[in-house]
Amino acid sequence: MAKNLSGDLQVASANRLADGVVVWLDDAGEWTTRLERAAISRDRRSGEILLRRAEAEAFAVIDPFLVAVAEDDDGMIEPLSLRERIRASGLTFDAIAADAVRYA
């Protein structure tokens, strides 16, 4: 799977103020919980613009920032850093369920 690993591709992310949920800024300037809908900037200059747009829409989120991502041939994006991959896809192990008496 070919990936663009140049580090130029970025999305804007933040945590939602009301519940802390991870969100990304989409092309319409709305915050979405779906990474695949995130607006992508493809060079440094547009990255700066993206961040400024995110900051302008920051009323209901906390401290927006840019996340470096890679894009495969099908246009699927994935953050480069492990931290951001975990933010995007959740825990890397199964947490215990509320009704569990044993860890499965």
Partner: peptide
């Protein structure tokens, strides 16, 4: 700390138990 579990975690049912 049962084998293979996240240390220190307990489910609601376990806490009640």
């Amino acid at each position: 700390k049962p084998a293979g579990a996240p240390p220190g975690d307990a489910s609601a049912v376990q806490m009640e138990g």
